[in-house]
Design a binder for these strands. Structure first.
Lengths: 157, 157
DNA sequence: TTAAAAAATGTATAATTTTGCACCACGAAT
DNA sequence: ATTCGTGGTGCAAAATTATACATTTTTTAA
């Protein structure tokens, strides 16, 4: 039972139930066969962007943000898992990542010291990878596969 | 000093400041010449539907109902107003913005999901827009005009 | 592989928020 | 004027959530 599967369960439980406290959520989780501590829950909820608010009647309950905003905060697991898609354009490779993680992934690429990569520029959720002159797209792809094993299969489906 | 005027002040302080705790809000209120206890604040916040949530960075702050689902960060005026100039170079479009607004404008472009745009990378006041292969500069301009109505006229003026 | 670094987690505790209770202020009804 | 009822508030305790620290697990680099 890892963090990301736990977070999926948390999101599900919070949306399908009226959850008023982390203790209560803890019990729901146990009922679903997933065990952890309240402290972990507190941390996961922050990552998920799920916070305690009030419903119309003024009763307290945990509320999720829109899915997009939640995605904006979550980045479970390894750096390469932050990569969402890649696209060649104008001889450059655009790499989209989970929001906020472009710098981390770009740093990883830079540190690999691969010849094929002249350099990278990272924004918030986008990396622009500039290949050296006369390096093929295939060569760059192979290079990235070396840095992030399993990446190509995951991205291409 | 009655409850309703206090609540008006609370709403104002919470929207105009990054408030992370009721204690902090209490001090802001005192600064504004309105005094009460933290317990009263807790009750008022419930009535106002203002609760503690997380901004994009995962930092805690109080958010009003309308803001909770939306962006925690306020962008004054229309995003396109932040665009100062544009210039084509090497098949790429450099967009200059007011300092600090590149990310917001780039985000807007990304979210438009337009085919013509392969991606963007934003710094502080500069955006590099990479069009897809075989997309003309005219097509990209039209695309931006669609996203930011009136932009071209204003820029070319 | 193996060592080093980074991330995840539990424990205990600190920080923060909520609430029960008593009391006060104010208006309506007697 | 007195009494009753309705909010509103502070105080302090209870409930809840966040976090510092130590430890374990996972990932990265050599």
């Amino acid at each position: 039972m890892n963090r990301s599967s736990r977070m999926i369960l948390i999101e599900k439980l919070v949306t399908e139930n009226v959850v008023a406290s982390q203790e209560q959520l803890l019990r729901l989780m146990e009922g679903a066969g997933m065990k952890c501590t309240q402290a972990t829950l507190s941390r996961d909820l922050r990552l998920l962007g799920i916070s305690r608010g009030f419903d119309r009647a003024g009763n307290m309950r945990y509320l999720t943000q829109s899915k997009r905003d939640a995605d904006a905060i979550v980045m479970p697991g390894r750096e390469q898992d932050a990569i969402l898609s890649m696209l060649w354009a104008r001889g450059l490779l655009m790499i989209k990542t989970h929001p906020g993680y472009a710098a981390a992934v770009a740093s990883r690429i830079d540190r690999s010291g691969r010849f094929e990569v002249a350099g990278t520029v990272a924004g918030d959720d986008t990396i622009l990878l500039i290949p050296r002159d006369d390096v093929s797209t295939i060569a760059v792809s192979d290079c990235l596969e070396t840095i992030f094993p399993g990446l190509m299969e995951r991205i291409l489906r």
